[in-house]
Simulated assay, not measured.
Amino acid sequence: MPSWNRSLVAVPAAIAVVAVAGGGLLAAARGPRDQSGAAAAPLSATVAKASAATKTRAATKVAVDATKLPTGRDPQLTYVRGRAVLGGVGRPVRVPGEYEIAAAARLWDTTLTVQITSATSSLLMIQDYTGKVVNEIRSVDSLVTSADGKYVAYASGGQFSDHQSGGTLYFQEHNTGPADVLRQPKLTDVAVLAVVGHEVYFRGGTEPGSAWDLYRWDTEKMSVQKLSKVKSPLSVAADGSLAAGMTIFTDSGQCTAVLDVAGQLQRWRTCQYRLDRFSPGDAFVVGLPPGTGEPYGEKRTAVLDARTGKLLREWTAPSLRAAVAEDDDHLLLQWHDRQEPQSRSALVRCTVSTGDCELATPISPEPLLLGS
Rank of each mutant, 00 (worst) to 15 (best):
V236Q: 01
S235Q: 06
D239M: 12
F278V: 05
T270W: 11
L265Y: 12
E207M: 07
Q272S: 09
D218H: 14
R277P: 01
A237S: 15
V286Q: 05
A257H: 00
Q272P: 00
F278N: 02
V224H: 02
R277H: 07
T247M: 07
G263L: 08
A243N: 02
A243E: 03
E207N: 00
L234H: 13
E220W: 03
F202M: 06
R274Y: 07
D213W: 00
Q272L: 01
K226Q: 12
G204D: 05
A238L: 10
T219C: 06
T250V: 09
E207Q: 10
C271I: 10
F202I: 10
D239S: 08
M246I: 15
P280E: 08
G209P: 07
R267Q: 06
G204N: 07
T206P: 00
G253L: 06
K221F: 02
D239H: 04
D239N: 14
D282L: 05
D282C: 05
L259K: 08
S223P: 10
P280I: 04
K226D: 11
K229H: 11
S223N: 09
F249P: 00
G281A: 11
W268R: 10
L214V: 04
V224K: 01
S252G: 14
T256M: 14
D251R: 12
D282N: 12
A244T: 02
W212Y: 14
V286H: 08
R216S: 08
W268H: 09
V261S: 02
A238G: 08
D239K: 04
Y215N: 12
K231V: 15
Q272T: 09
T256F: 11
F278D: 02
P208Q: 14
L275F: 08
A238S: 13
W268T: 05
G240H: 03
L275W: 04
D213N: 07
G245H: 08
T256Q: 13
E207S: 08
A211C: 10
Q272V: 00
L214I: 05
L227Q: 01
F249R: 11
D282T: 05
Y273I: 00
W217C: 10
D251K: 15
G245P: 04
C255I: 04
W212R: 15
V285F: 03
P208H: 12
S232R: 15
V224R: 04
K231P: 04
A238F: 06
Y273R: 15
A244M: 02
T256P: 00
A257T: 08
D282V: 07
G287Y: 10
R267Y: 01
S241E: 11
A237E: 02
G253N: 04
F249I: 02
I248A: 08
A237Y: 11
V230T: 09
K231S: 14
T256H: 09
A238D: 07
R216K: 10
E220V: 11
G204W: 04
F249D: 13
L227Y: 01
D251G: 15
V286I: 12
P208S: 14
F278R: 02
G205S: 14
G287W: 09
R274F: 14
R216F: 03
G287E: 12
